[in-house]
């Protein structure tokens, strides 16, 4: 489902070229649960951004469900992000002035889904995550774990095939981090492809497939 071929990503720092990703070849199947680990600067976040179409490769090919997405226009990439990819961030990135329900609704608003459908889908998503009673709270009235679960509801509201999580528990205590991981894994069991970038060895070890990165290259790729 995700196929990366000879992906390179170079950054220009001053007059020096830094190879953030250096000839990455990676295939991830539908419904896989993959963790990407590695020290800071190993290129794991860059890889995630690239898979999430937030960044473009300097060279190489990226096939998503067999479609070459490296050559898509900005608008097509935006559409692909909206429908096929979900993001969960370390810092949650909820819009502070919108309620929990409105935050979850946002991708549907951008996709111009009719209002009545939107409301029903948001209600269902909140129900699944046991957050119905928090629907009309603003983010600052929610706990960290609740915020991250709202963010997960938002990432999955358009029913994407891929869920990308960048340090999803990085800002959370152990208990609520556990809740968040349970939520993500439950989604994976229902068929979503889950890719988690993390520093946390314990979290990384839970994944069925572990990719270890160093200096922009895949150092180890261990299937469960």
């Amino acid at each position: 489902m995700i196929e990366l071929q000879h992906i390179r990503r170079d950054f220009l720092v001053g007059d020096q070229t830094v190879h953030a990703l250096d000839d990455i070849n990676l295939c991830i199947d539908r419904a896989e649960y993959v963790s990407i680990m590695g020290p800071s600067g190993s290129g794991k976040s860059t890889l995630l951004n690239l898979v999430g179409l937030l960044d473009r490769a300097t060279s190489g090919q990226y096939l998503l469900d067999g479609d070459d997405v490296t050559t898509l226009s900005d608008v097509q990439q935006a559409q692909t992000r909206n429908r096929r990819i979900g993001f969960v961030f370390q810092a949650f990135h909820l819009v502070p002035r919108l309620t929990a329900a409105e935050n979850v609704e946002l991708p549907l608003v951008l996709a111009a889904v009719p209002v009545d459908q939107r409301k029903a889908r948001v209600a269902a998503a909140l129900q699944t995550l046991n957050l119905t009673d928090r629907a009309h709270h603003k983010p600052d009235q929610l706990s960290g774990g609740q915020r991250q679960r709202i963010a997960i509801a938002r990432a999955t509201i358009t029913e994407p095939a891929v869920l990308l999580a960048d340090e999803p528990t990085g800002n959370l205590d152990h208990k609520s981090g556990g809740d968040v991981i349970d939520t993500l894994e439950a989604l994976n069991r229902r068929g979503i492809t889950l890719i988690v970038v993390t520093h946390d060895a314990e979290l990384g070890a839970r994944a069925h497939r572990r990719v270890l990165m160093r200096d922009g290259r895949v150092e180890a790729d261990t299937p469960a």
Binding site: G52, L54, D74, V75, A78, Q79, T80, R81, N82, R83, F87, H93, V95, L106, P107, L110, A111, R154, T158
Partner: peptide
Amino acid sequence: GLLKALGAAPRQ
């Protein structure tokens, strides 16, 4: 940035 990640096109 978030709106972009959620799939907002530049025009939006």
